[in-house]
Design a protein around this nucleic acid. Structure first.
Lengths: 250, 250
DNA sequence: CTCCTTTTTCGTACGTCCTACGGATAAAGA
DNA sequence: TCTTTATCCGTAGGACGTACGAAAAAGGAG
């Protein structure tokens, strides 16, 4: 009865924390491994998108039968969880420098991660797979925030809001920088559609604030640039908010 | 070549802004309408989740053949876009009160919206359907922010970061309050799993900051309470950030 | 070498889902 | 009555995930 597109949480949990199996030597030698499947699936999703990542194609790219995958992985939902955790493990989170710098580094790394793996925006929202990747990230953020002297509850809340914002904003950024590839629409066509929309469909009388922002040049930047500005502003505000709270309490 | 799970943007755009068709009187009388299909689809997704919302079941709930739907809607991707926009139109966005209050009202409304329509978290991230619902929301936020005296570019960035944060945090909140229904796992089982995880799987030596936060009571709150705290903190910080910027510039 | 046990491989088949196609159907107008 | 127009919807096909079970390939025992 899985309605969220994710597999049984317990099953995934065991896979995420599993220690590599020790083979007895007996039995037919495996052609693929747990890890190779994850890597192949990620490569496919990176190149052709999450929808193109089918069990058939993953198996093909590994030169095995489709059903062979099911010896190593319970199903596609679990495989997706494993991919997400594997991606998060790519974050390079050295605990160095002052706390604010560390969190900014995390934010930049997260953007780069979404650039490499644009499919993350389709799966990485709420209810994340509770694997080593997630825990490493959370540990990094909590560890940085302990330097502020806030209470554990405050730190936890601050960490959660940073995760929420950075994940969402990274997804938006990656969305824009991959837009051409995703929509199959060239940048020129995009601007054309946009012009047609503003000229023919948009009714300024109905949305005066949008009209005014448009006239004042608020939309002159490309979507990617605008998203980057929003990212910077939001992150700065959150970090400032943490500093204010720290000064008040300590 | 749609890889994002969304339909042709141009097609959806026309549907979103379409004026109700004037029937000539000729032709077989319709059994369903555009709007009824959207409402039925939303009811299904609300009750049973997005995965359970199939074209077959939507048609059944309307007492028509499956293919009848395709007379009114090009396909499922477009229907999903229409549902998202329809949901956004439910936001009650009266432009009253000081700007900060207005944005807080928007935030609360958005949480309520995600409570009513938990499937939004699976579709409402980047690349939103550019319909009346989106524009009404953006107009509301921009209109509120104009009171701050910031430049159009600053307002646009601030608005975008609020949208990113509020959407992500609302999704997390709704996720937790619907967790039981989604996972089919009772609250007791959830806490049991949690205990098993901390006792058997979690390695404190590897994640010292998490261990410390745990010991300091940082995780004592229920996930829903913790998410609410993160929501409040993040929104307050963003609004403070806007105030600071406004004071600096004018 | 032969047989048994263990482990992995993978072809077949089924159920679900979206949707292209085209004939049937029901109204209005000529 | 015949034509035009708009809608309804049964059938069929293709894509996908995966249950099942037989076949294959290794080690070890006799």
């Amino acid at each position: 009865m899985d309605r969220s597109g994710r597999g049984d949480p317990g099953e995934t949990l065991n896979l995420l924390w599993r220690t590599p199996r020790v083979r007895s030597g007996r039995g037919r030698p495996p052609k693929v491994s747990f890890d190779k499947i994850i890597v192949a699936a990620m490569a496919l999703a990176d190149r052709d998108g999450l929808d193109a990542m089918t069990m058939d194609r993953i198996a093909d790219s590994l030169d095995v039968g489709t059903m062979t995958l099911y010896t190593h992985v319970p199903g596609k939902a679990e495989l997706t969880d494993l991919m997400v955790d594997h991606a998060w493990r790519e974050l390079d989170l050295a605990p160095e420098g002052p706390w604010r710098e560390r969190i900014e580094r995390y934010a930049r790394q997260n953007v780069a991660l979404h650039e490499r793996h644009p499919w993350l925006r389709q799966v990485s929202t709420a209810r994340p797979p509770l694997g080593p990747g997630l825990f490493a990230r959370n540990d990094f953020l909590l560890s940085a925030l302990f330097e502020t002297g806030l209470t554990a509850a405050e730190i936890s809340a601050a960490s959660d809001s940073i995760i929420t914002f950075v994940d969402g904003a990274s997804a938006t950024l990656a969305e824009h920088s991959h837009a051409e590839r995703i929509s199959g629409q060239s940048d020129e066509d995009w601007w054309d559609d946009r012009r047609v929309f503003w000229e023919n469909i948009f009714d300024p009388a109905r949305y005066p604030a949008i009209e005014r922002t448009w006239n004042d040049g608020g939309f002159d930047r490309s979507p990617a640039e605008a998203a980057a500005k929003a990212f910077d502003f939001g992150l700065r505000s959150l970090l400032d908010g943490i500093e204010v709270m720290a000064r008040r309490s300590g």
